[in-house]
Design a protein around this nucleic acid. Structure first.
Lengths: 197, 197
DNA sequence: GGGCTGACAGAATTTGAAATCTGTCATCTG
DNA sequence: CAGATGACAGATTTCAAATTCTGTCAGCCC
């Protein structure tokens, strides 16, 4: 049916679709192959294992998030506003996926459980972006963080409840956004004057 | 064999033991009854359902933690030191149980997943204790938190990664204690001068 | 020849029948 | 008569057989 050549990207599109429909527990490589009208052997030509395919789907989603955040990181202007906007975006991204694509979100969560390298790299990337914003804040005289990268890791840790998928059960708590606002205020305040470590 | 009367506490002791040995997935009410040399009907006389029994075991463990923390809350002295000590104790308690009684810890984690009332109450209690310490800190001129209870909830949220069981997978991360120290410094700093919300 | 296919072995998952467990309650016992 | 018992129905779990899937590869096709 489909005439186009089989590329990793087309496979990823199909895999994402299959995961969305069947969820991480039911989706098979055979399903992905069927969706593309090819044999499963062809899928294995592009992805060594099923885990590699799943990781690639997740990596692509994480890359999209990261790119979106990087725009905020790179933009100039008040570091405090940028930090807020950056975290708001991160939290909103996660919550939106959890709401609109629960099955795809489950795939991503499962990956987190298994502490795969992909997630570690993503977290390091996010911490580095935060570190960058905080360093800018230091330059602007808004913050006084002696070790911006460590402060970045700390801000990411401290907001984990609001963006780490393992906490999904708490995301329906009506007090969540009040808690988020309070944490953010506390953190920004902490970055401003003090010597955090 | 055992001559003593059957009390809820004896049942809880036995249930805790069975959970420790078999884990939450394998432990049955029949096992608990066997351990006590009674019929399972007798256990149901004291606990309406298996879930109620499991909740009671967890509640007792949480109460022990809470009592230990309350001593720190109630003690006088520098609020900042107390806040640190309180959080250190909370984190240490959780990590110790995770290490020494993984099966019992799994029971407790499962409860958290199911967002039972028991856990909600425990969290509210912890937040209130933190609120109390922060209020003391305000009085001592160490902190400047306009809403101590909200600040308490915020501190609990911000340190969730280090004590909430859902994060257990990350507790083996070698950078964890560095992150914990950085978060704590940031939070204490935030409480000191600012107006968090 | 580069890329795709489908047969294949071993691993993982599904299935359904048998075993066990949960929760109730009529009955027993001290 | 307060408290314990064990038989019971329905729900859940277990186990082993059968199916399906993963990953490989010799050969096919364009």
């Amino acid at each position: 049916m489909t005439e186009a050549v089989l590329t990793p990207d087309r496979i990823l599109d199909a895999a994402e679709d299959v995961l969305r429909r069947f969820g991480p527990a039911k989706a098979t490589v055979l399903d992905v192959a069927r969706a593309l009208n090819v044999s499963h052997g062809s899928v294995y030509r592009h992805f060594k294992t099923k885990a590699a395919l799943r990781d690639a789907v997740t990596e692509r989603w994480l890359a999209r998030v990261s790119t979106r955040l990087r725009e905020i990181t790179a933009a100039g202007g008040d570091a405090q506003d940028r930090l807020r906007q950056w975290l708001d975006t991160l939290v909103e991204c996660k919550h939106r996926l959890a709401r609109t694509d629960p099955e795809l979100f489950a795939t991503y969560t499962r990956l987190t459980d298994e502490t795969r390298e992909v997630v570690t790299a993503h977290v390091a990337d996010l911490a580095a972006q935060l570190g960058r914003i905080i360093a800018d804040g230091n330059d602007q005289g808004l913050f006084a963080a002696p070790d911006p990268l460590l402060a970045g890791r700390a801000v990411l840790s401290a907001t984990a409840r609001f963006h780490n998928p393992v906490n999904i059960a708490e995301w329906s708590d009506p007090a969540l956004s009040a808690d988020y606002a309070a944490v953010l205020d506390l953190l920004l305040n902490g970055l401003r004057t003090g010597r955090p470590e």
